[in-house]
């Protein structure tokens, strides 16, 4: 049954709830130049943000004994930043074993917009800028992130309709 389980997962659509995009609370985001291999609440406001100083060429802070230099980065024009998380599955699905779910798959055509087995995500916060940090030195205009942030305007050109002859 292992394979069929994987197929079931494959067919489950993941919805992004549009109404959550409307007015999520603003979030404060920092992109750190180090790996923190956990995902969980952490007292950022107690240990990190209070120590941020405005230095001569940008923001200064320290994390795990290393000196960080940072700067504010705004999201590309026409875009909004969102923090997206998955809604808790049990609330949505009730208790359904895989077998029942598969039967449901068979009953519901792929054209159906929402199926009971689907999963849902929503925006929990939004942002229009964030702080990017470099180790010892400021990320600056050559930071790879800067290039990435110009992607939307390049993508727009790639995907725009071509002019007629």
């Amino acid at each position: 049954m292992e394979n069929s389980y994987e197929e079931t997962i494959d067919k489950r659509r993941v919805h992004l709830r549009p109404d959550t995009l409307r007015d999520p609370a603003p979030a404060s985001l920092h992109l750190l130049p180090c790996e923190v291999p956990v995902n969980r609440p952490t007292p950022v406001g107690r240990f990190f943000t209070p120590a941020i100083r405005m230095g001569r060429d940008g923001l200064e802070a320290s994390f795990r004994g290393r000196s960080l230099r940072g700067e504010e980065v705004v999201v590309p024009p026409g875009f909004v930043g969102y923090v997206v998380t998955e809604e808790k599955a049990e609330v949505l699905m009730g208790k359904q074993d895989d077998h029942e779910r598969q039967e449901q798959e068979l009953l519901e055509p792929p054209e159906a917009l929402e199926r009971d087995c689907d999963r849902f995500m929503g925006a929990t916060a939004s942002f229009s800028s964030f702080t990017v940090w470099g180790l010892e030195s400021i990320p600056g205009p050559d930071a790879k992130l800067r290039g990435a942030l110009s992607w939307p305007s390049l993508a727009a050109a790639i995907h725009a309709q071509v002019p007629e002859d």
Binding site: S28, V36, V44
Partner: peptide, 13 residues
Amino acid sequence: KNHSWFINESVQS
């Protein structure tokens, strides 16, 4: 490589 987020009062790898 080697980046993480602080999102409000949380860390995201």
